[in-house]
Design a protein around this nucleic acid. Structure first.
Length: 325
DNA sequence: ACAGGTCAAGTCGTA
DNA sequence: TACGACTTGACCTGT
C-alpha cells in the first residue's frame, strides 16, 4: 500500500505564515466606516491566501502532496455584520493562483469546517447557518479550480441525549441539504459521541465516504463492538465511487491522563501496525497527521521510515510518501 | 518581549 | 435560563 502523509493548515517550519489571521467582530464594529472595515477584512484574507501559497511552496520543496486548508481563510465571512459583503471578486485571483500551484504539484486539498457546522441540529436557524457556511466552502473550492466532491469533512454532530434520535434527525435534515453540498461532504467518527461503527452505518445509508480517525476510535468505541479491522473493508468500500483515494486521520494521545488531546508528535507504534491492517484492504491511502507539531510531526515519521523502515518492510518513496508491505 | 485574558459561531453538564 | 468547559490560534492589554 502506498501512503501519502498530510498535515493541517499551518507549518511550524515556515514562520509568520499564518493562514488564519483575523479580526474580531468587536474590532470590526469599532471601525466607523463599514466599507473601510470590509476592505481591511479583504486585506487580511489576501494575506492569509498569500501565506497559504508560501506553505504550498514549502510543501513542494519537501514533496508533501496532501494538505488541509484552514477554514478561517476569510475572517468574519458569514457573520451577520458582513452580510452582503462582495468579497469574491477581491479574492478570486489569489484563490486561482493557489489552486494552480496545487494542481501543478498534484496536491490533494481539503477542508474541515469547524464544530459550529452541525447538520443534525434540531434548530432550523443553526442548520441554515451551517448550510451557508458549507456553500461558502464550495465557493472556495471552485475558486481554487477544484471539483467540490468529497472535500469537506464533518462530524455527525450532537447527541441531544438520544443518539438514535440524533441520527434520525441527521437523515431528516439531509433531505434539506442541496445536492451539491451533499456531494462535497465526508463524515468522520468523533472522540466523544458517534463511534466508528455508528458513523459507518450512517455513511452507508447516505452514500457518503467515511473518514476513519483512528485516534478518535481509540477514545470512543462501544465495549461490545467488533475490532476495527472487521469494519475496515466496509469503511474503505464507502470510497468506491469517489475519484479520491481513501482518507484517514491519525494522532497520538497527549498523555495518559489526557488521552483525547493531540500530542506534539505521532508515535510510530500508534500508526504503523494500524497501517498494516489497512493495507489488507486498499493499495492507496492518504493519511492526515493531526499533531501539534504539524509538518514537523510528518518529518519525524518519515525519519523513522528512513531509519527503521527497512526491517519493517516500509520503504520511503519520495518526500512524505512511503510504501508498506 | 512576554504573560494572561478574550473571542462569532454549538453542545453539554451543572446550577 | 444562564454560564463555564470544551478547544484553538490569534490578538489585545498590561507590564
Amino acid at each position: 500500500m502506498d501512503v501519502r502523509l498530510g498535515y493541517v493548515a499551518m507549518s511550524v517550519h515556515v514562520t509568520n505564515a499564518s493562514p488564519s489571521k483575523t479580526m474580531t467582530a468587536k474590532q470590526f464594529t469599532g471601525i466607523m466606516d463599514r466599507e473601510a472595515g470590509l476592505r481591511k477584512l479583504e486585506r487580511i484574507a489576501q494575506e492569509n491566501l498569500r501565506n497559504c501559497l508560501r506553505l504550498l511552496y514549502h510543501n513542494r520543496a519537501y514533496d508533501i502532496t496532501f494538505f488541509r486548508l484552514s477554514s478561517k481563510l476569510i475572517p468574519l465571512v458569514g457573520h451577520e455584520l458582513t452580510e452582503g459583503w462582495e468579497y469574491r471578486g477581491h479574492l478570486e485571483a489569489e484563490f486561482r493562483t493557489l489552486g494552480d500551484v496545487a494542481a501543478k504539484d498534484g496536491v490533494r486539498l481539503d477542508f474541515h469546517p469547524d464544530h459550529f457546522v452541525v447538520l443534525n441540529t434540531p434548530r432550523k436557524n443553526v442548520l441554515q447557518v451551517s448550510l451557508d457556511t458549507l456553500k461558502h466552502h464550495i465557493w472556495m473550492l471552485k475558486a481554487l479550480g477544484i471539483q467540490p466532491n468529497h472535500r469537506c469533512v464533518l462530524h455527525i454532530g450532537g447527541a441531544y441525549k438520544d443518539k438514535g434520535k440524533a441520527i434520525r434527525q441527521f437523515i431528516k435534515n439531509w433531505e434539506l441539504v442541496p445536492e451539491e453540498i451533499k456531494g462535497s461532504l465526508l463524515l468522520e467518527n468523533d472522540d466523544k459521541v458517534f463511534t466508528a461503527k455508528e458513523t459507518l452505518e450512517l455513511c452507508e445509508a447516505l452514500g457518503v465516504p467515511m473518514v476513519l480517525d483512528i485516534h478518535h476510535h481509540r477514545c470512543n468505541y462501544e465495549e461490545n463492538e467488533e475490532e476495527i479491522e472487521a469494519l475496515l473493508p466496509r469503511i474503505i468500500d464507502t470510497w468506491k465511487d469517489s475519484p479520491l483515494p481513501v482518507k484517514m486521520h491519525i494522532s497520538s494521545p497527549r498523555s495518559e491522563k489526557d488521552r483525547r488531546s493531540h500530542a506534539d508528535y505521532v508515535t510510530p507504534e500508534d500508526m504503523f501496525p494500524f497501517l498494516r491492517q489497512v493495507a489488507n484492504y486498499t493499495d492507496q491511502l492518504d493519511m492526515m497527521v493531526e499533531a501539534k507539531k504539524k509538518d514537523d510531526a510528518l518529518f519525524r515519521l518519515m525519519e523513522w521510515v528512513n531509519k527503521q523502515g527497512e526491517k519493517e518492510q516500509i520503504r520511503s518513496l519520495n518526500g512524505a510518501s512511503f510504501r508498506i508491505h
